[in-house]
Design a binder for these strands. Structure first.
Length: 106
DNA sequence: ACTTTGACTTGCA
DNA sequence: ATGCAAGCCAAAG
């Protein structure tokens, strides 16, 4: 399976009300430093019909909604997260409460 | 075909 | 503790 498909699979595995980081996903697919690739994959998702993938649950390691500008509107991302009972601390997601770590490989 | 950049992260100075 | 540089994979110019 391609890295993209693997990334999509993991992002789809993110439970509602939780978020994860690019780094964790990258590590989960095997590429530790490939966090940027995750961004590329999600970018492809945003432009394609892969809308079944909750890319709004993916934030950077600080909990910042780095990819919000790639949505229809910069507010959609936060609104969707809030709709899933995700709490925010200022402009960032409350990581200590909602950080979800994907299943890591050995 | 080669270079640059991108929704990032980690490490060394 | 803050600042700069490198690393990773893929796509666009």
């Amino acid at each position: 399976m391609d890295l993209y498909e693997r990334i999509y699979d993991i992002v789809r595995s993110i439970p509602a009300g939780s978020v994860t980081t690019y780094g964790h996903i990258a590590a989960a697919v095997g590429t530790r430093g490939g966090a940027r690739l995750v961004g590329w994959a999600l970018n492809a998702v945003a432009l394609s019909d892969r809308l079944d993938i909750p890319c709004h649950r993916v934030v950077n390691r600080l909990g910042e909604l780095s990819g919000r500008m790639h949505f229809e509107t910069p507010f959609v991302m936060r609104e969707r997260l809030e709709a899933e009972n995700v709490t925010f601390v200022g402009e960032t997601v409350d990581m200590s409460r909602h950080l979800w770590v994907p299943p890591m490989p050995d």
